[in-house]
Simulated assay, not measured.
Amino acid sequence: MRSIWKGAISFGLVTIPVKVYSATEQRDVSFHQVHRKDGGRIKYKRVCTVDGEEVPYADIAKGYELPSGEIVVLTDEDFADLPLSTSRRIDVLQFVETDQVDAIYFAKSYYLEPDGTGAKPYVLLRDALEESGQVAIVKVALRQRESLATLRVREGVFVLETMLWPDEIREPAFPFLEEDIEVRKQELSMATSLIETMEGDFDPSEYKDAYREALQAVIEAKIEGREVTRPEPEEGEEPAADLLSALRASVEAAKKSRGEKDGGQKGGGAKDGAAKKPAARKSTAKSGGRAAKSTEKKPAAKPRSRKSA
């Protein structure tokens, strides 16, 4: 990986020099626009709509359009006076519980690596933050934009996650929220049963981008000169008569799917699933403070621990 930014974490009077790396990458298949006839690349020219002349890049400025359609032209000098920090610091503002930060605020993730002599204070802050079970709220200027961000620990490395500002989050003002929609107790019970049937430990490696794989296969077939085969469409299931029937059918399908995944056969799947269930629930109880299930009468629920796993 190549670092995209160098700076320092400012933690009280402690300064920790770091390098910043993009933690994620898009794996979409990219294309160029080409001439269908001969495959030639399509080029675009920067042409002014007023005089029709092609404009050199050095003569291009940023324009803000008013509601009237008029344009306010901003130059580099206008941007130079804006209060954007150039100190290359990641300023720690406060520490908060992890569950206080809604995931909708997160924009992009970056890894931080200690730079030069910053390894020891980096590890010190990392261990202290991990021990606290909290995340740091920080402010940083990246790519000509100042952002709030969180600083957390993942696999022994600081992860900087830039955040949207509060006024960038849209209000979900949907009409159904004002309606009095009645949910029957039996329906809620069946929905809860479906959730319990489908619960498990999240393993990202179990999922794949089927569209990208199929698209790559089409490209490879084109390269090799083979005929492209199209997969047969999947047969659609008959819609359920009502919500409760749909939930009940979903529970049965989830149980069947879980049995095939765990044991390959119906009998073996149930046995293997039963053997694996206690361990999974023990892990869940440890991480989230949720009591393990029992056929006996449940005791009063204990309050959740605020400390993150």
Rank of each mutant, 00 (worst) to 15 (best):
A214D: 10
L142C: 00
G63Y: 06
D28T: 09
K45N: 09
V47Y: 06
I42Y: 05
R304G: 11
A61W: 08
A241Y: 04
L247H: 02
L13G: 06
A254I: 04
V14R: 01
G200E: 03
L124Q: 02
A291M: 12
E196W: 00
M190P: 04
K277M: 07
S68A: 03
G225H: 10
A191R: 01
A291W: 05
K266E: 14
V96M: 02
M198K: 11
E130P: 00
E113H: 03
K222N: 02
G133Q: 09
Y111C: 11
E161W: 00
E227S: 12
R145W: 03
P233T: 15
V72W: 01
P67Q: 10
D242N: 14
E171Q: 10
K208F: 04
K120H: 08
S10C: 10
T295W: 06
E161C: 07
Q33Y: 07
K293C: 00
R226A: 12
F202V: 13
D203N: 07
Q94R: 14
L177Q: 11
F158C: 07
E232T: 13
S245F: 11
E54Q: 11
G273N: 08
F202H: 10
K286V: 13
F158W: 04
K256C: 00
A285V: 02
H32V: 04
E252A: 10
Q33C: 04
S30V: 13
A280N: 04
V72T: 12
V50Y: 05
K208C: 00
Q265W: 09
L84G: 10
E199S: 13
D272S: 12
K37S: 14
A214E: 14
D81E: 15
S205E: 13
V138K: 07
G264P: 00
A301D: 13
D28K: 09
L160M: 09
L74Y: 09
L215K: 02
L151W: 09
E232I: 11
K277D: 08
A279P: 05
P278G: 05
R212V: 14
E252T: 02
R226L: 12
T192E: 15
E232Y: 03
F95Y: 12
Y105E: 07
G118H: 06
K298N: 07
K19Y: 03
E70K: 02
E53G: 11
R36L: 08
P56E: 01
F11N: 13
H35S: 09
K255Q: 08
E179R: 03
K19P: 03
K302T: 08
A300P: 04
I181N: 04
R36I: 05
V138F: 07
D209A: 03
E187I: 02
D167Q: 06
E224V: 10
F174L: 13
L243G: 05
A274V: 11
M198E: 13
S189K: 15
E25T: 14
V55E: 00
G200C: 01
K307G: 06
L243N: 09
E178F: 02
K139D: 11
L244R: 03
E232A: 15
A241F: 02
K45H: 13
